[in-house]
Amino acid sequence: MTDERSPAVEARQLVKRYGTVTAVDGVSFQARRGEIFGFLGANGAGKTTTLRMLCGLLRPTSGTALIDGIDIVAQPLPAKAKLGYLDEEPFVHPHLTGREFLDFVADLYGMARGPQREERKARLLNLFDLAQKDGELIGSYSHGMRQKIGLASLLIREPSVLLLDEPTNGLDPRSARLVKDLLEELAARGTTVLLSTHILEVAQALCRRVAIIDRGRIVAIGSMDELRVQTGSEGANLEDLFLKLTAGPESREMIERLLEGGS
């Protein structure tokens, strides 16, 4: 059952192991209703695996994933009805047109047919500049356009929780800005957005709180100010904080060495 006081998204000690490799190791966090929550990490840190456990695509080795207080493993259908998940490579059907794909998703989720749905579909296609591509199959879309039709397929049914894995990946600057504005608007209306990205400018601009994951573990969680306090880095931006927390190699030094070697 949904509890209005419960967090919109909650990960409790999530663990995912593949044989001897632990991809996610005891990840816990909560995203509140109407919040844009950033989930940051380097490539292979465990972001996508965590997101896939939260949306029910992957079964956790242990731990619990809750959407609006509903355990997605124990009660998958009501939990899935509340959430929308956008993969970094959106799941689309290449042999459908954008309009047909939106209809397919709407029917799949049992959305009522009628003027509202038709209007919403037309508005979304317009909003994402896909209306002019009507009649063309998704298979012929560019990566950015697939991303946009993937987003439109989430928004057509207004889920209360959005789990987005690199949603601005491959988008042109105008579309990326559109997505950012849209997410802020949705959050203002009460939708919870869990945003996984490694574009730190996007995270800093949009997210009220962020969690940083490194090698399968959460290394920091909180607002920008809280992260600065945790790391003792006053005035630092998110990029500095991220690099400090994930202890990456000194890139400037590496670049200099590379250029010296090449000249």
Binding site: K80, D87, F91, V92, H93, V105, Y109
Partner: peptide
């Protein structure tokens, strides 16, 4: 597209 079906209720 199977993942889309798995995500659906």
């Amino acid at each position: 597209g199977f993942q889309l079906l798995r995500l659906a209720p």
